[in-house]
Design a protein around this nucleic acid. Structure first.
Lengths: 121, 121
DNA sequence: GCAATACATCGAAGTTCTTCGATCTGATAC
DNA sequence: GTATCAGATCGAAGAACTTCGATGTATTGC
């Protein structure tokens, strides 16, 4: 029998749930919703690119003005996507002066990846 | 500098791309779209639950009739979600008699998880 | 104080997604 | 053959998402 314990994100700052089963018996709806929220944040090409660009940027951080041109979208749209990534716990935002610096939350992608790999066993 | 090579899914049956960078320099749009497609399939609570239930089911497979009641949705809706999971390369479909049996594609979740974990380094 | 810059927030328009009932396709059984 | 059952496919209705220009909010600089 496939007994796979997939932890809930805990990636999301607001998420209190932890260690909920994904593929144990029948993944309770709440844990499934938590997981889906995290994956939905990665389910848009623009957001994957933003994550990528931020991670590859000097110092591992970038401000909005660094990001609008590479993805070819307006500033409000980029801000919107960044907010979604922050809410998902994948990016961190730090205001310094009039700039907002975004960086990848250490371990956040790793944690999501571990959930999937663990689920596959 | 954060130099993260994130391979393209290759999880999707139709996907020909492989070994595209996610967070190397600025994730090319095509690779980002490929990745986003895979994650979008996991970006819905119902689909996470379906995946979970299938994996936890006896023999690691289940037919549609086993799935409608647990998720509390109509048969067309469940079929629709299953198709999305199959298209994403996460589930396999096998017709036996008048039943269609769905099972988790071995290694598919693992592969996605590895992409994320690798991207986190 | 005022002007300018960086960014967030606010509608609104267009698109996509989720869901359903109704219908169609195959396979089994008679 | 016909009836029945499992499941896919087909619109359609409603919700959610993506995107934008316009506006609001801080912060810097004069």
């Amino acid at each position: 029998m496939t007994t796979i314990a997939l932890e809930a994100p805990s990636v999301a700052p607001t998420s209190g749930t932890c260690c909920a089963p994904l593929v144990r018996e029948a993944a309770d709806p709440e844990a499934a919703a938590d997981l889906a929220r995290s994956f939905k944040a990665l389910g848009d090409p623009t957001r994957v690119r933003l994550l990528s660009i931020v991670a590859a940027h000097d110092g591992g951080e970038a401000c909005v003005c660094d990001l609008t041109e590479p993805v070819g979208l307006s500033q409000p749209t980029v801000s919107h996507h960044l907010k979604i990534l922050v809410d998902a716990g994948l990016l961190a935002r730090e205001q310094r002066g009039k700039w907002a610096y975004y960086s990848v939350v250490p371990g956040s992608l790793d944690r999501l990846g571990a959930l999937l790999s663990e689920a596959a066993r």
